[in-house]
Structure formats: C-alpha cells, structure tokens
C-alpha cells in the first residue's frame, strides 16, 4: 500500500502548484511573471487531472508486447487524453498572452501591470 508521502505527493503537490500559480497571478507586478504563474497554475491542474486517473501498480494504457492483452491493470486513459488537450490550450493562451505583453510593452514601455490603467472607467 502507498505510504502517506507517496499518496499525498501528487494531490498535495498539484494543489500546491495551483496555489503558487494563483498567488503569483494575483500578486506579481511584472506581466511576464503573471503569465508564467498562469502557466504554472495550468500545469498544476493538469497534474491533478492525471493524478486523479492513476491506478496503483498499473501500467500505461498501451497494448504492446510488454502487456499484450487488456486483461492487465491499466491506468485510466481518459484523464490523460483530457490533459493532452488542456496542455495545448494552456500553451496557446500563454503564447497569445506573451504576444499581447510584447505589444503592451511597445505601447506603455513598462511591464508593471499596475501602471497600465488606461481602461479605468
């Protein structure tokens, strides 16, 4: 059976990642740091998703020479499929964010988000 550390390393770890990411988004001044923490938060959630699908002492859901039949214990494939999609979404959003930051930098020539208050009203 898994001892406490093994059991909580994944769930706890991913929640910690989310926490750090969220705090990063909420508190950092530099826009790029915000984007990085956004990415951090995304990876945290993805990790959590996959961790939820983990079956102890089961192997990757691929039928190949090593475990030829589906009788063997497999890990839940669906979260992995979901994670595959959400990682790409995460990167897409990040890339777009980065491009926007570059454009804002051209305009305001500062990366400090609290100075960009153009849209106060």
């Amino acid at each position: 059976m898994l001892n406490f550390l093994e059991e909580w390393s994944f769930f706890g770890g991913s929640i910690l990642l989310i926490f750090i990411g969220l705090y990063g988004v909420l508190s950092r001044k530099n826009m790029i740091k915000i984007l990085i923490s956004l990415g951090l938060m995304d990876t945290g959630v993805n990790l959590l998703l996959v961790a939820l699908g983990y079956v102890e002492a089961a192997n990757a859901p691929i039928i190949n020479s090593v475990n030829p039949s589906n009788a063997a214990a497999f890990v839940d494939p669906i979260p992995q499929a979901l994670v595959l999609t959400s990682i790409v979404i995460g990167t897409a959003v990040l890339a777009l964010g980065l491009a926007l930051v570059m454009k804002i930098y051209d305009k305001y020539s500062t990366l400090n988000i609290s100075e960009i208050r153009g849209l106060k009203w």
């Binding site: 898994l2 059991e7 102890e56 039928i63 039949s69 839940d76």
Partner: peptide, 29 residues
C-alpha cells in the same frame, strides 16, 4: 483516493476493452 481510481463499469473500462459499440472483451496484441 490517490491510486484508487476505479475504472470498472465506467466509460474508461469500455475504452480499454474497446467495447463501446460492440461488446468485445478481449484485446490481444
């Protein structure tokens, strides 16, 4: 709990047995 994701009688089980439309049991390499 971690590591206890039960797959049986869930959609994951069907995907593993590839039995969504047909009720196939065995998938042998």
């Amino acid at each position: 709990e971690f590591g206890k994701a039960d797959i049986n009688n869930r959609t994951a089980q069907l995907y593993l047995n590839k039995s969504v439309n047909t009720d196939n049991k065995k998938v042998i390499y």
